[in-house]
Design a protein around this nucleic acid. Structure first.
Length: 522
DNA sequence: CGGTACAATGATAGATGTCGCCTTTGGCCATGGATCC
């Protein structure tokens, strides 16, 4: 491609950007990624939150012939994006999910090629019927949004994330764009490996946030945590998230706080709640009708509230990546915000247990092979209900998902049939066991990394970002509790965070037109 | 003892009735979209 062509392309890019998204210029990273994408290269993009990642595929969707497929981890995220695009008069876009009736779904499948942008879950990509239609289409780009989910969820919790590489093959190898706001070099490697794309063009930008203050407070008893939280919430009436590793504790804290601080508007949020309730709580928090949410890790992805000022960790996550994500939900507007982790030595046990429960034990694997062998002798058809599986294999649903994915991977179960081969089974058993041991070791070392950070004596900021990138920006004023910061000296900017502050007419108009946050975050 | 999602299915309680039925004022039946496991 000659220089002249390049210039024309660039001009066209900006024109489209203005026309469809009403931005005058690109933000850092966007142009570089889009140019690579338009040239058909495979791209891995790590851009900080609020930097307009979605433009990186939405704009190419308008320019490229054919359809762009976007793999998204949450239905709510897909719906949100589609809503925003439709408000911008980008109509050839759809989110496919279980909210559609089977009839609607059929109709959409048949005219799928008419859409420029199609959002799907990784699970849907395993539906044969859906892939049947995809195969016949011209797919110009295959996007994985929130690509760290491959690494974070794909190995056990949502194994369909690990099958994306097969889908990419089946739909005739379109260019791939993987995007995330949080990925250590290790996670980047994992993403590229699981997509079977070792040669992706990397566009990595720093993700450190200089407006966040990091603070760790060590306590002896849980009562001290409660006292600390009550103290903090009495001083600071700010949009706040408190993270827990257990649903019960989150509920208990919400109730206790409501009792202890009567004027506080507080709620709890976790994955075990009704979908309707979850949406309601989230909305009330967004609209500043709720000030504090006691939540598990279920609360976060897709929460686009710019003025969260305080993140408290009552429990510690199993890895630094999760902590950075959760703490990073504060101060999206760039204003100084505070992350406080409350730690007692006993807390080590919870993440340790969670890690242990994620994968089946060796005994369970042995038993599973025995059970499968017995079943296979009677009939090679594998059809059991969930209850039967839990009974026979002594396993929970999540562990079974992992096992089932492993059995399919090693060709022990195929199309609900058990295929017996002594040699193959023996080898598969060894590989599965090795895999589990390796994964568990890795998780434990990640937990230790988290604990090492908690016990760090030098700058917390430096130690926190060190696994992610080589450099970071040191703030002028407050840095962390190891660099002389104490909670008492913090004077947050109350102006923008107080719920009674009237929003400007521009903001109201923006909300009305569902234009989203992309203009505000600087 | 502890956490994350999606899709697809079957059971269930509650609303509806392009003039539902029968009769007088609600009770009963078939139907098929939400909701809960």
């Amino acid at each position: 491609m000659g220089g002249g062509d390049r210039l024309n392309t660039t001009g066209a890019l900006e024109k489209k950007l203005k026309k469809y998204f009403n931005y005058d210029s690109f933000r850092k990273g966007q142009r570089e990624i889009i140019e690579d994408v338009l040239q058909g290269k495979d791209v891995l993009g790590i851009l900080p939150t609020g930097s307009g990642k979605s433009i990186c595929y939405q704009l190419p969707a308008l320019l490229l012939p054919g359809t762009v497929i976007v793999v998204s981890p949450l239905i709510a995220l897909m719906m949100d994006q589609v809503k925003q695009l439709k408000a911008k008069h980008f109509k050839q876009v759809i989110a496919l999910n279980s909210f559609l009736t089977p009839i609607e779904r059929q109709q959409i499948y048949q005219r799928l090629h008419q859409y420029r942008l199609v959002y799907v879950s990784p699970e849907l990509l395993q539906q044969e019927q859906f892939v049947f239609y995809l195969k016949k289409m011209n797919i110009s780009l295959f996007v994985i949004d929130e690509a760290h989910c491959i690494s974070q969820w794909g190995h056990e919790f949502r194994p369909d994330y690990m099958k994306l590489k097969e889908t990419i093959q089946i739909i005739h190898n379109p260019p791939v764009l993987a995007l995330s706001a949080t990925a250590t070099p290790m996670v980047q490697q994992d993403i590229m490996k699981s997509l079977n794309k070792p040669e992706m063009n990397k566009h990595i930008y720093p993700i450190d946030r200089k407006n966040l203050i990091f603070s760790i407070r060590k306590v002896n008893e849980h009562e001290e945590k409660l006292a600390s939280i009550i103290h903090l919430l009495t001083i600071y009436k700010l949009p706040t998230l408190i993270y827990f590793s257990s649903r019960n504790t989150a509920e208990w804290m919400a109730q206790t706080l409501a009792y202890e601080i009567p004027e506080l508007r507080v709620a709890f949020y976790h994955g075990g709640m009704e979908p309707m309730d979850r949406v309601a709580i989230q909305q009330q928090f967004m609209n500043d009708q709720l000030q504090v949410i006691c939540c598990t890790s279920a609360f976060g992805m897709g929460i686009d509230k710019s003025n969260i000022r305080l993140i408290i960790h009552y429990h510690l996550p199993t890895q630094i990546e999760s902590f950075v994500q959760e703490a990073g939900r504060a101060g999206r507007d760039g204003k100084t915000s505070l992350s406080i982790l409350l730690y007692s030595d006993k807390d080590f046990f919870i993440p340790k247990q969670i890690i242990q429960n994620e994968l089946p034990s060796i005994e369970i694997i042995q038993n599973a092979f025995r059970v499968l062998y017995t079943l296979q002798k009677e009939s090679n058809i594998f059809s059991l209900t969930e209850e039967q599986i839990e009974q026979l294999f002594q396993i929970n649903e999540i562990q079974w998902r992992f096992m089932h994915a492993q059995f399919e991977k090693h060709d022990i179960i195929r199309d609900n049939k058990i295929i017996y081969d002594k040699g193959k089974w023996k080898e598969a058993y060894q590989q599965i066991v090795d895999n589990i041991q390796e994964r568990t070791r890795m998780k434990e070392s990640k937990l230790h990394e988290m604990l090492r950070w908690i016990h760090e004596e030098n700058c917390l900021r430096e130690a926190l970002y060190q696994p992610f990138q080589s450099t970071f920006t040191k703030p002028e004023d407050y840095c962390c509790s190891n660099c002389g910061f104490t909670v008492e000296q913090w004077k947050p900017d109350i102006q923008t965070s107080h719920h009674n502050q009237p929003t400007s007419w521009q903001e109201k108009l923006q909300q009305l037109f569902l234009i989203g946050d992309e203009n505000e975050a600087k």
